[in-house]
């Protein structure tokens, strides 16, 4: 089974999110959406237009928005709380106390994740959010790889009764899933099996480039890898990943996030405790982000298909 990126028009996961919310508004009368002056960017605006009575414009007050969403959740509402990943995860204490430790089923949406946002620079590039959210007991941490997965994820969250964080991209993502794909929370999604020279794990913005990189490597006679999409960063599918890691002997992770605390860290933690295989973490190497075009930044951090392919080849050869 080999999936490559299809020719369908790429869609940003924030856009798929906005569409999904709007579509679910009728079915779920308790759905309430909150935004902090970014509804045009997070795409919650679509829901706001369709269901104005259930949209709360909170102004530029992320802390107050999170607390308000917690109160709504504790009284039976289904709140989606939207902002940029950097701003919303920056209100960590509110997420920790008012959401997580209160058991408030707030669905926290962090858009514009990673260096993939481009020119705005480091202050707007959520690069630590996965690490923060992962540290909270009971927090479900998700990151979809394309529009199909995003829409299914949002639907699953409607009936999920505990706190969740979803990390979305500004940039458009190529579709990697076929029609009929079923998102299963907590289960590794194998996207391609070119071979078992290594297991290449990706998430969010790096899913498309990783799938491409794997295809290039296979075509170029390079290492033949299996590609896994880690859409659920917490709870990480330790069993699923370990099983494939045993087969492949080497694991490489790639993400648009600081390698400290992100998906790669979660994978390392899971595998190290089973004393399995060597792991290489690709991603933002514990440096600040910067301004540039998204393409330039993906190039710089080796998050594009070429960079990933090079790094995979180098690391596997060097060992």
């Amino acid at each position: 089974m080999t999936t490559t990126t299809t020719t369908t028009k790429p869609v940003a996961s924030r856009e798929a999110f906005g569409n999904a919310l709007e579509a679910l508004g009728r079915e779920f009368p308790h759905l309430v959406v909150l935004d902090a002056d970014l509804s045009k960017s997070t795409m919650s605006m679509k829901f706001a237009k369709a269901y104005p009575a259930r949209f709360l414009e909170m102004g530029i007050q992320e802390a107050n928005m999170l607390g308000t969403a917690a109160g709504l959740a504790l009284c039976g509402k289904i709140p989606f709380c939207c902002s940029f990943a950097c701003f919303i995860s920056g209100r960590f204490d509110q997420i920790k106390m008012s959401v997580a430790y209160s058991g408030a089923a707030v669905r926290i949406i962090g858009t514009h994740a990673g260096v993939g946002i481009g020119e705005d620079g480091y202050s707007q590039q959520g690069l630590e959010d996965l690490g923060l959210m992962r540290s909270l007991p009971g927090m479900l941490v998700l990151q979809p790889g394309d529009d199909v997965e995003t829409e299914q994820m949002i639907r699953v969250l409607m009936t999920h009764r505990s706190p969740a964080y979803v990390r979305l991209t500004r940039q458009k993502l190529p579709r990697v899933h076929r029609d009929g794909y079923r998102f299963e929370p907590g289960k590794l999604d194998v996207l391609a099996r070119h071979g078992t020279d290594a297991l290449l794990l990706c998430t969010g913005g790096t899913v498309g480039p990783a799938v491409d990189a794997a295809a290039r490597l296979a075509q170029g006679g390079g290492p033949r890898v299996t590609v896994g999409n880690v859409h659920t960063i917490k709870p990480i599918d330790a069993d699923g990943i370990a099983a494939l890691a045993r087969e492949c002997k080497r694991v490489i992770t790639v993400e648009d996030h600081n390698v400290v605390g992100g998906m790669g860290s979660a994978v390392v933690e899971a595998l190290a405790e089973r004393h399995l295989v060597p792991v290489k973490r690709l991603g933002v190497q514990d440096v600040f982000g910067e301004s540039g075009t998204p393409e330039e930044l993906y190039r710089r951090h080796h998050l594009d298909a070429e960079g990933i392919a090079d790094d995979v080849r180098d690391w596997l050869t060097r060992r």
Partner: peptide, 11 residues
Amino acid sequence: QGLSVAQGMAL
């Protein structure tokens, strides 16, 4: 943090 949570409950 409490007043924000209370506001959400009141809403």
